[in-house]
Amino acid sequence: MSVTTTAGKLDVRPAARPKANKMFNFGPVAIGWGVLLAIYVGLRLYQQAFAFEYGLDSTTPEFETYWVTLFNIEIPLIFGTGFVIWTYLWMTRDRNLAAIKPEVELKRYFNLVAWFMLYTFSFLWIASFFGEGDATWHQTVIRDTALTPSHIVVFYACVPMYIVFGVGSLLYATTRIPAFANGYSVPLLMAVVGPALILPNLGYNEWGHAFWMTEEIFSHPLHWGFSFLGWTGLALGGVLLQVVIRMSQLLKQLSPVESVRAK
């Protein structure tokens, strides 16, 4: 459907679809989601198979084999992958952003949104799926290590994963979009750095559990840091506004409306 106006009269009828000037390619996002989904489902199945089987006693060799090994693999693998992606984004940065064409710039805004589609998707798995799964584990069994089968997945696989995409989003914006290269976007920094701080906040969490919190109350003040840092996700509202301000300019620049007079 499309709308054209003539002399103030509205004409609402199907219009010829404008020549496809495709701004957004869903394929890469779909692939990204598919791969992430496979990883998360794989990790969940791994928990199903081995969490209760070999994960209750951190002093056994089986725990070493099944859980510590996973921990030792996932951390370098995920951060290593992230480092490759980040390096790539930086090395291939646009070195002449001042000369960017409006159409390219608009496409890059769509690409930035694609990054957010992966970033928010990956954050969902720690915030909801494995996050409450952690409650299931620690309220059910007796905690005997900081590296429980639940933590090895939720903290040390899921957290690095969304950090990869968060920092990736930040780097994409900074290296390819003029507004984000000319000035630090405060809300974007908040939306990326805030959730990323959940990783160091684990230090506080484990310290508290090691020394004075012997039982699991999920709503305990010891855990509030996770919620507070999660709130920084609200700052994507500010990023959205930054994007909308510039995109609305670009839309009008690329496809001006001569016949429409604003009311």
């Binding site: 990204g32 791969v35 990883i39 990790l43 996973l70 490759v84 291939t92």
Partner: peptide
């Protein structure tokens, strides 16, 4: 190019997790 890199690295992660899962299921 960028998406190929992403795809490649993510596939690596997926393969690793699949292998772990598979080895685990056998050992179950």
């Amino acid at each position: 190019n960028r998406w190929l890199v992403c795809l490649f690295t993510a596939s690596g992660l997926f393969t690793a997790s699949s292998l772990l899962t598979a080895s685990g299921l056998v050992a179950a």
